[in-house]
């Protein structure tokens, strides 16, 4: 290992690119796992509650949560620092500035803003669910939190559904730039595979945005749908 290794990775523009890319990819992985867990909610309330119970009572959860928080904080704090630095790199603005149409996209140019909105959502999300109302259910003599009930109740309010869906769409935009961007930052540029990475990036963003949004919409609409069949 070279003597410049760790110092330059944490301080240089290129080194910090890697950190943004790696933490971003890790968070992308987390989002996917979280999404799969969420779908248990639609399959069976007991299964969803049992899954959440297993997850939160496992002693390893503290370590896993700590690592997750560290990844989030690294990604967010570094993003803020880099954005502020970037602002300073052009003190005098242009009188006219036109985008080429072949470079920046809405998603790429709003990364700091979508990022901040996702952060605000994240805090509310923890307050509403992790630290939300404590309902209990008992399955086979084991008492556990009834998170299913909490989720169902929460999404009876159209405003909650709207905010949730809007944030998931913004997250989709954030990911559509962030995902391929991470590969570029880590130095992938294979002529045969790079187009594929961009396609996967878009697909992944759509899966996350639509996948997450579907659940609250379904929860909100299902009484009406069920009511209609009676």
């Amino acid at each position: 290992m070279s003597p410049t290794c760790c110092h330059s990775i944490f301080t240089s523009s290129v080194g910090r690119k890697y950190i943004m890319a790696i933490t971003g990819l890790m968070l992308s992985g987390f989002l996917l796992v979280h999404l799969i867990g969420n779908y248990l909610l639609l399959i069976d309330p007991a299964l969803f509650n049992a899954y959440a119970h297993k997850l939160t009572t496992n002693p390893l959860i503290y370590g896993a949560e700590a690592i997750l928080i560290l990844i989030f904080l690294t990604h967010i704090s570094l993003a803020i620092k880099l954005t502020l630095e970037n602002r300073q790199a052009r003190p005098q603005k242009y009188y006219v500035r036109k985008l080429s149409g072949r470079g920046a996209t809405w998603a790429s140019s709003t990364m700091p803003y979508t990022g901040i909105l996702i952060l605000i959502f994240l805090v509310l999300h923890l307050i509403h669910f992790k630290y939300g109302a404590l309902y209990y259910a008992t399955y086979d003599g084991v008492e556990m939190r009834d998170l299913h009930r909490l989720v169902i109740e929460f999404f009876q309010l159209p405003l909650h559904v709207a905010i949730y869906v809007a944030t998931m769409v913004l997250t989709g935009f954030h990911l559509s730039h962030g995902f391929w961007s991470a590969f570029q930052s880590l130095g992938f540029d294979h002529p045969n595979y790079f187009g594929l990475i961009k396609k996967i990036s878009l697909l992944y963003a759509i899966v996350i945005a639509v996948g997450y949004s579907f659940i609250p919409v379904w929860v909100y609409l299902s009484p009406y749908i069920a009511g209609g069949t009676h």
Partner: peptide, 12 residues
């Protein structure tokens, strides 16, 4: 200089 955010305006 600022930090690159892979917007590709430079290439364009």
């Amino acid at each position: 200089f600022g930090n690159c955010t892979n917007e590709k305006e430079c290439e364009a």
